[in-house]
Design a binder for these strands. Structure first.
Length: 235
DNA sequence: GCGACAG
DNA sequence: ATCTTGTCGC
């Protein structure tokens, strides 16, 4: 079943409000915990799909057993677009529906893997940080693109990494998850160290460039979006 | 001032 | 994110 998500009271309306909210919430970030060890407990992927025509957004949360990468729980939520896409403000577009999907799970999420960034963000408060602070859960971000950040080329072997840099600051890591394939861009969200975030990412990529969590969540939210838009528009 | 820019 | 056919390769 798919739950319905509304836009929370007090949700930012303008970019100025949204940026101010990020600056407030950043004070609650916890960056001095290592986080759960890879291969133990649960790992949960979250992702969102949009339909620009109808303004509908669908989110999915998929819980995997961290040791076997088997799916142990799934949930989806549907809502309306809560903010336009603005680079640096992605969280305001995705979080209400993601929270609804997470809340509908009947198992503990454990570590949450986001499709996007955490600390690698203009104000050091990307989607993964935001979701972590709001839920209290350990979170990391694994993105497909380097955004505005720079990095040297990691070695071509799986497991090779290079610092993801914002000027002099290491805000994440370009991590090769498959031999000879474009790296992914890992950054810390909340209550997880960067080393551990990379270890989790490697544990979640035995076969593909992207983490199993992201792949499962991506497939599920697309399915949920199709069903939601099909319901709204009969043939 | 003008682009570029996670999804 | 999303619009989209065929095609190369394991």
């Amino acid at each position: 079943m798919t739950t319905t998500a509304g836009i929370p009271e007090g949700w930012p309306t303008t970019e100025e409000q949204a940026r101010a909210r990020q600056d407030e919430l950043r004070a609650r970030l916890v960056l001095d915990e290592p986080g759960p060890p890879p291969g133990t407990g649960h790992v949960t992927g979250v992702d969102v799909a949009y339909d620009d025509e109808s303004d509908v957004v669908a989110a999915a949360a998929v819980v995997l057993d961290a040791a076997t990468l088997r799916v142990v729980a799934e949930a989806t939520a549907v809502g309306r677009i809560s903010f336009p896409y603005v680079p640096g403000l992605l969280a305001f577009r995705e979080i209400p529906t993601v929270l609804a999907a997470l809340g509908a799970l009947d198992r503990e999420p454990g570590l949450v893997v986001c499709d996007g960034y955490g600390l690698a963000h203009p104000r050091r408060f990307g989607l993964a940080c935001h979701l972590g602070v709001l839920t209290g859960l350990p979170t990391i971000g694994v993105a497909k693109n380097p955004f505005t950040f720079t990095h040297d080329d990691p070695g071509s072997a799986r497991g090779s990494a290079a610092p993801l840099l914002a000027g002099p600051d290491e805000v994440g890591r370009a991590l090769r998850t498959r031999d000879g394939v474009k790296p992914v861009f890992v950054s810390v969200g909340h209550r997880v160290s960067l080393d551990n975030a990379c270890a989790h990412t490697l544990a979640l990529t035995p076969s593909y460039r992207l983490p199993e969590t992201t792949r499962r969540a991506d497939a599920l939210c697309r399915r949920a979006l199709k069903e939601a838009t099909a319901d709204a528009r009969p043939a």
